[in-house]
Design a protein around this nucleic acid. Sequence first.
RNA 1: GCCCGGAUGGUGAAACUGGUAGACACAAGGGACUUAAAAUCCCUCGGCCGCAAGCCAUGCGGGUUCGAUUCCCGCUCCGGGCACCA
Length: 883
Amino acid sequence: MPVPKKHSPAMQEKYLPSEIEQAAQAHWNTTQAFRAIEDAGSPNPRPKYYCLSMFPYPSGKLHMGHVRNYTIGDVLSRYHRMRGFNVMQPMGWDAFGLPAENAAMQNNVPPAKWTWDNIAYMKQQLQSLGFAIDWKRELATCAPDYYQWNQWLFLRMLEKGIAYKKTQVVNWDPVDQTVLANEQVIEGRGWRTGAEVEKREIPGYYLAITKYADELLSALDTLPGWPERVKTMQANWIGRSTGVRFAFPYELDGKQEKLWVFTTRADTIMGVTFCAVAAEHPLATHAAKHNPKLAAFIDECKHGSVMEADMATMEKKGMPTGIFVDHPLTDDKVEVWVGNYVLMSYGEGAVMAVPAHDERDFEFAKKYGLAIKQVVAVEGETFSLDGWQEWYADKQRGRCVNSGKYDGLGLEDATAAIAADLAARGLGATQVQYRLRDWGVSRQRYWGCPIPLIHCDGDGTAAGCGTVPVPDEQLPVRLPEDCVPDGSGNPLAKRADFVDCACPRCGKPARREIDTMDTFVDSSWYYARFCAPDASAMVDARTNYWMPVDQYIGGIEHAILHLLSSRFWTKVMRDLGLVNYDEPFANLLTQGMVLNHIFSRRNDRGGIEYFAPDEVELQRDEGGHVVGATSKADGQPVDDGGVGTMSKSKRNGVDPQSLIDEFGADTARFFMMFASPPEQTLEWSDSGVEGAYRFLRRVWAFGHASQTAVAAQPPMPAELPEQLAAVRREIHLLLKQANYDLAKFQFNTVASAAMKMLNSLEKAPRHAGHGAVITEGFGILLRLLSPITPHLCHALWIELGYGDDIIKAPWPEPVAAALVQDEEELVLQVNGKHRGSIRVRVGADRTAIEAIALGSEAALKFMESKSAKKVVVVPGRLVNIVV
RNA sequence: GCCCGGAUGGUGAAACUGGUAGACACAAGGGACUUAAAAUCCCUCGGCCGCAAGCCAUGCGGGUUCGAUUCCCGCUCCGGGCACCA
């Protein structure tokens, strides 16, 4: 083991961050300080602490969100290491994805090269920030030895029926002849071509996450370490609801058919006045055969975006099909409409419409003059067709009316009675339904993990074998790394060397699947691979040692999709016997987003062009408020789109590199932690960085000035002069509070506490015992600060002779003896208003405190000689006299 | 539109899960040191009011409480998610 390298005997007077940081990083490197080894077998195993930050997409440079995210993770890692945990903090690359293809189009560089270059640069950036990462565990999802296990597990899912094929609806750009991602659709048009986007149905593969819906929902209760809001979001997303699935029978071409719908409001079934089906529904297709107007309308519905937000806000339109179905309980004729707001992929692709008690149906009925029949009443309220009122849909107070035998029943009783009657007629039953839909994993893109399937179509004389899985021994299906996408679809289609293959079953010529997997697949299990990055299987025993992740840290924007798909993936791996845990992330910290201004301009093709903040000049009024912006390049105005999350596609990221270059990693880290609590959004601004730098310089200066005092290692005297005792007491109080704040992840006040400690130490009077107080106090300060600014603290710890290596020092705890005091100050209130303060002996009883309070000058003045009705005493805090 | 958050001085924020609103900083202004600048140090810094006393003040409007930034109800604005950005 190399001996830690000390600085030259003469300590630098000036704070030189780059020198200090390089030396500290070299030390950690040579000592392999952050190499994490499983120690379950050792006689005294330390508790393990797997600290994981969401791995970055290698977009080119780190951005502020990364610095924030990884500093939080690093603070927690270093803190737990000093607390005696066996800490593992890995890092890797979420390396497949769309931006690489966009960059390829722009620069004519293959996505693979672009991605690997970015990884190299960003790795060096991460290393310069001094994160306590075990780099031996690094992985990239675009490497075949990683993604082969995506393929392998996909095949297992296929065998178990969890993966299956069905059609999916995608955004189609008719000009580029390509599938667009949602973010590439801007106001219904393709971002590059400006062409109106169409919906298109194509085949794709799905993972049956709904099979796990119940467990994904109920297991949220086993995650006390998750923020409540994230669990609420996931629960709402899964959206378990109990309702009734039932059918409207009808006759078509002489055949008896059934139109199935699902509703959570079966109690309103007697108020059904029409049904609505999706444009893609078979009934719509049938009706359109002889109705050109309807066919045109259906065609219109198929234009536009597939996004739920767009569906929800667009104008609700419909057209009757002329087909009537029978009401399942009354046998009344009910007309079927096609509605643009009904989604084929949701439930049955058809809904019953009860205009009187559903706001959307109400508006639709008013617009098209359809019947509205009130079947629920609330006492004291009068139903009117003039406008929608909230109580029309009231589930608690509503009672059935105009509903025959169900009149007078509330929601639950009515639903039960109606479900029973429907069941008796063979037309329906109670059913649990989820809002959660199965996970479509096929992407018509190049830069992703190939789906390991082969299509054997036959040779004209004989039928082929159909879709055949690639045999395990032929995995991985390697993605060619030299393609350059041009925006006109998947370049793999043109690669005969990739597409052409032999059918594994019959040996005849066949085609390889060219769709790749959703990149969420890559990120759904990387945390497990970090535990055993070189395993010859997907995971091994080391995974069960480290998992679950003890602390997961990442942006709140991942609250649903990434975190839910990871939970699902874990459960699939468990059910395949690969791992022994149920949930991947025991504790979750969702950091707020780092926001910045978004500047954009519409280009001449109708697409949108984004401007980076440093490419824009701001116009301000006299008050300093921003009133407009122009491009520095051409002087023409650009739109200020408000603030939003820093993202590659919106080009509003800020590169932290200049900050690191100018002030050093410690300043960048300190500022990020000090600026605001981790869970809160942070609107980026450059100011404040100087203040952080100034503070670190003061820490260094104080250390330099205290060298001799600390080197003497003076013992703490039994009695300290009062002012010094006060300084010592404050240090320990601040430490107590800081330890409490650390447990709450409130790093901004921990940073404040360090600043307050320095303020206090600097003001400590030079009485007998000064050396002992500052030696102890500065030692506390350095250890408290070391997870945030590890380089500075590493250097000072050695320079002042506290020890060889601060990361091996124990975490400081407040000393009870330092905290004692004889008297304390209580706030005095009269009628809840702050009127002064009183001093009382610590531990004084209530009557003594009351007496002092009532006798105080301030109390006499503000009580205006009235007598006290009540005296509220809050120990250690305040006294409130109510008159 | 639906689901989840947030809002406190000129700015970032704090207030120990109902108890002194604005800790700690940034910016600004004033001063010291200096030939000068940088750096450093000291002072002021929510509003009304000459000071003080006092009053007002935590997005807006109500409520509960001796006491509300904190809890409840109703809004406004901002951010995140809405299934192909990651």
